[in-house]
Design a protein around this nucleic acid. Sequence first.
DNA 1: TTTATTTACGAAACCGTTTTCGTAAATACA
DNA 2: TGTATTTACGAAAACGGTTTCGTAAATAAA
Lengths: 341, 341
Amino acid sequence: MNQKINNLTLKMLAKQLGLSVSTISKAIRDSHEISDTTKKRVNELVQKLNYIPNPYASSLGSRNSKTIGVVIPEVVDSFFAKAINGIESIAQENGYHVLIYLTHESIEKEKQILKDFESGRVDGVLLSVSRETCSHSHINILMNKGVPLVFFDRVVDEVKASKVVTNDYESAYKATELLIKNGCKQILFLSFLNTLAISNKRLNGYKNALLDNRLAFIEKNILTFQNDSKKDYLLLKKKLNLTKRADGVIASVEKLALPVYQACEELRLNIPGDVQVIGFSNLDTAAFLNPPLTTITQPAFEIGKTAAALLVKALGRKKIELANEEIIIPSTLVLRRSTSL
Amino acid sequence: MNQKINNLTLKMLAKQLGLSVSTISKAIRDSHEISDTTKKRVNELVQKLNYIPNPYASSLGSRNSKTIGVVIPEVVDSFFAKAINGIESIAQENGYHVLIYLTHESIEKEKQILKDFESGRVDGVLLSVSRETCSHSHINILMNKGVPLVFFDRVVDEVKASKVVTNDYESAYKATELLIKNGCKQILFLSFLNTLAISNKRLNGYKNALLDNRLAFIEKNILTFQNDSKKDYLLLKKKLNLTKRADGVIASVEKLALPVYQACEELRLNIPGDVQVIGFSNLDTAAFLNPPLTTITQPAFEIGKTAAALLVKALGRKKIELANEEIIIPSTLVLRRSTSL
DNA sequence: TTTATTTACGAAACCGTTTTCGTAAATACA
DNA sequence: TGTATTTACGAAAACGGTTTCGTAAATAAA
């Protein structure tokens, strides 16, 4: 099909050096079975002829691919983009290739992708589940096939696996507390519909901070957005337009901070004068918004890097085993003007 | 090495059905050589046993990988993130996998990556070169090996290949013209050092707009940033602090818009009162900056999608050939308050 | 009815490595 | 000096598919 040029093979090298294919193969991979002088001869020819092994033949023979699969909901998202950077830094360092798959928050796609992984395409998987992910049999099935998997950020508590997350509960608690300290009485909590498994942790942090400060927890102050629906935005606007309107908003997801700004603008509400806003966000532009947005900033790069390191380390072992641990890397509260008094 | 479970192979399926391996293989790929009844029998067993072919064996045999390699400078960048979405949409649709590599603007990494591609790891390549990329032999070498390649956005003019770009020249011209119309006399042009090849197009658009409007083109008004160096920022600040200071700024790269905002803030300059700003950017937050940023917005998704479509279409042909064409998808000027009068 | 063609399949080679195993020569041990 | 180990390599069998080619039976053409 392809008009690939004359690809150099081990056999050709072997012929040129009067050695066997297996000797060449071993020499290239620095096997102890091969003498140093032979290794040198081989490597010189490899250099000279610019030989590059066929990765598919290697993978087939060795039953591993030096590839890790990264499954994330979305890439147009500062958190995930930065996490990819972290993952990629470890991958490069250890000679792994990175296959990226986007679920676009669809559990169906997620299932499809994980199923494909049963083929042995990747040596291990880094997974951040979609919002829709409520069941987790597809994940267990993959793991039971012996494919190592590490969760990052959006984990499924019910699945036993290595996980790298941030301190969602504490962060939300702290954010809520801040708003309370700043005098807010009616605090809206904005999130996306997350069917089950994925963290209600932020919500709980919010809830408990309210209770601990003798404020009522009001069900209606939780706004659960569907996918970019206009309806939710209108509901938000309505909440901000009541006589007894909200005076504080926590956007528990990066994408939900901007609608708040927009709503306030349209309603001519002053931030932070009328409404104080705080967002879970990795946006580099947070400091330049109008007004600058106070954020809970997750250690995206670190989370990606740590998850990848965990996986790569496990892959390097004879007997692959991932501890059932949860590594927590704390987020940072960055105070800016959207929450000053 | 891996404790992979009992992977199902064609041979096992063949035995169960009393057919030959080749028949099964053909049936699965819907070959015309196989009768419908046999295909049905095979597919039923495939379903039942949940058989998934080993991609590495397939690739080795068929000499193609159903994988495309995407090489970009950075993923924490709205443009590239959105371009990936476009690429991925086409890939998914056509059953291709997407291998993503980041150069981090380093030509050395870029060379490394392209060299690895000589191995046949990917069927085709989507490339947006690094800022450092001044020579292009590494690209030509790869293409000469018969690996189809499509440039997107950051192309190398000297290399003959398919390219998908936006109208950089016109966009910059238009942006400059806008500032001029708005009364700016001293317009700064901010860019990163791009050694050669990559578009001086934006710069030329800027230059010609000045000349066409009888404004002097002043070499010193071009600020060429190195990598995130503090020095450049200080130079920018200085330029905005002269007695005859700049009254307009064009950030020809997304990342350079924020430093302008920061500098203005520190200098207590009003945007757009004292300085008008326009940025090449895909930032979703542009509309919520203080003040909202007028942007030249590139059709990132479309560019990625088009480039991928071009590549995939070529890969589908018996004889792979990519026209030496350049597809131009125009950017949009979005007027916001950073340039109002 | 005879011959040509098509249909539906199987045998075997092949893709380019890795891995297992066998072995002659070199070295160590006793 | 004879035996046990190492050392350094090669032959051949995987790995799990795809592809080529050959062929018997079924169908079409003459």
